[in-house]
């Protein structure tokens, strides 16, 4: 029975981590779906989101909700700016060139932050009332932070699904992702649609950053690197370019990682993600929800 409680507790933790990965992975998958670029800077937008929330809470004394909104808005602008300045000129260039630019952008954001705020971790102030719901006589518990992560993630994923499925912009995104030239011929404004994709993805990354800040109570300029890569792996796991796939992949990734830490060796946690990646790429490169696409010559 003791084992079962531990399992339940790890499940609760794993879903929190998974929610965060899912939010980041959504942005990766949308951007990859539309311009076939692994946006390495995406993890750093998430870091920027965490920092903006940190500053708005510490210096402007905003509450959680307003900090979240400010952060998401700022990340939206940042994401669109990055796309316009760094990625747009390279739309016709080779994929390698675009990828190297993305890596450059990622380092740029990281080390500009290191330069201005220093590399050390900063404590994220507590913005939530302490809440702890216990089950089975306190052996399993869920905190307010975790409930908040579940709630915000669920809301954002549903909202995103609504935007992509029902709105005109969302339809344009799917059209551009499916066939850019054909979409252009149908009168869809490609530049606007791609910017909108970056905006949405970056807003989600910003939200993830705020949630991580609240959850782990710490932010630092290099925090985006590893979660960014893992979220990308999550997107590949679910099937890159597929929105429900990213959510599923992120959740799985969070759960797997949590259980590896709980039952295996915590020092291997970073290797697990990549081991999973190599396995998927070998077994089913299109991901869990993906279907194989034949290459056209």
């Amino acid at each position: 029975m003791e084992q079962f409680y531990v399992f339940l507790q790890q499940l609760i933790n794993g879903v929190s981590l998974g929610s965060i990965y899912a939010l980041i992975a959504l942005g990766y998958t949308m951007v990859y779906g539309i311009i076939k670029l692994i946006n390495f800077a995406h993890g750093d937008i998430y870091m920027m989101g965490a920092f903006i929330a940190y500053f708005s809470v510490s210096y402007f004394h905003l509450g959680f909700l307003s900090a979240l909104l400010v952060s998401m808005a700022a990340c939206t602008i940042l994401g669109v700016l990055i796309e316009r300045i760094a990625y747009k000129p390279l739309r016709g260039a080779t994929r390698i060139a675009a990828l190297i630019t993305a890596i450059g952008m990622s380092f740029f954001l990281e080390y500009v932050m290191v330069f201005f705020v220093g590399a050390q971790s900063r404590a994220f102030p507590n913005v939530l009332p302490a809440l702890r719901i216990e089950f089975f006589g306190g052996k399993v518990f869920i905190t307010g932070k975790e409930l908040l992560i579940y709630g915000v993630t669920l809301f954002l994923v549903v909202l995103l699904q609504f935007i992509v499925r029902k709105t005109k912009t969302g339809k344009a995104m799917r059209a551009v992702a499916f066939d850019r030239e054909a979409a252009m011929l149908m009168g869809i404004n490609i530049d606007y649609t791609i910017s909108a994709t970056f905006a949405l993805g970056s807003a989600l990354a910003g939200a993830a950053g705020v949630l991580v800040g609240v959850y782990y109570s710490a932010v630092n300029p290099l925090m985006g690197m590893t979660p960014g890569l893992k979220a990308f792996v999550a997107a590949v796991l679910g099937g890159i370019g597929i929105i429900p796939g990213a959510a599923l992949g992120g959740m799985l990734m969070g759960l797997i990682e949590t259980f590896v830490i709980a039952y295996g060796q915590s020092t291997y946690r970073d290797a697990v993600a990549f081991a999973i990646l190599i396995l998927i790429l070998l077994i089913k490169p299109s991901g869990i929800l993906g279907s194989n696409v034949r290459e056209k010559i």
């Binding site: 760094a86 390279l90 060139a97 190297i100 450059g104 952008m105 990622s106 380092f107």
Partner: peptide
């Protein structure tokens, strides 16, 4: 150094 590297990568690629 890293900021310089990052800018170098982006500028060269563009």
């Amino acid at each position: 150094r890293m900021i310089l590297y990052a800018l170098l990568l982006i500028v060269i690629m563009i």
